[in-house]
């Protein structure tokens, strides 16, 4: 784990646990809700959940959190950019789009979150919008038939909004 960890509000975690039902089988749903709040899974939150719920240990929670691609142990950006690299998108040129995103956001050498915490970038293996390949999803919005130029316009628009 890298970077500074956010201070966790345990009463909020309790709320989530109650809301999802404090059973072992609901662990994934609980972690999803926690990640919605913090945009990643803070170590303290995982330890807390692991101690609180019967049948779990912090190690098990950590095991589940690291198994699934959706969970991140480092903070994600305010804008989560998902560049699809499924087969259809790959064949239609998703890699130039990804390179353009990284270049626009100055992300190099395996970094995936911008320094200001505004953007995080990841590739995903298929968003099921193959008819519109290549596809980029930013938060919940789907951007179809992307090119390296088009994605720059999209990112610029978001940056402009943010700098207002």
């Amino acid at each position: 784990m890298t970077g500074s960890q956010t201070k966790v509000d345990f009463s909020k975690i309790d709320e989530i646990i109650t809301q999802c039902g404090g059973k072992k089988s609901n662990l994934i749903a609980i972690l999803q809700k926690v990640q919605e709040v913090y945009r990643y899974l803070p170590e303290d939150a995982m330890i807390y959940i692991g101690t609180k719920i019967e049948g779990l240990s912090p190690a098990t929670v950590f095991g589940v959190a690291t198994f699934y691609a959706q969970f991140s142990l480092d903070p994600k950006g305010k804008y989560e950019v998902k560049c699809c690299d499924g087969t259809a998108c790959h064949v239609r040129g998703s890699m130039p789009v990804l390179n353009a995103i990284k270049a626009r956001l100055n992300l190099q050498d395996g970094k995936f979150t911008t320094d200001d915490g505004l953007f995080s970038v990841e590739t995903v293996s298929c968003l099921g919008a193959c008819g519109l390949a290549p596809v980029v999803v930013i938060n919940e919005k789907v951007y179809p038939q992307m090119t390296s130029d088009a994605i720059k316009v999209v990112l610029d628009t978001i940056l402009q909004e943010e700098n207002k």
Binding site: S25, A29, Y68, S125
Partner: peptide, 22 residues
């Protein structure tokens, strides 16, 4: 809801995932 693991399409892995495990 799944959490992003292709192998969960395999039925026994999917069961493990519903049970909240890896």
């Amino acid at each position: 809801e799944g959490a992003g693991a292709f192998v969960c399409g395999e039925e026994s892995a999917l069961i493990a995932s519903i049970e909240g495990e890896r």
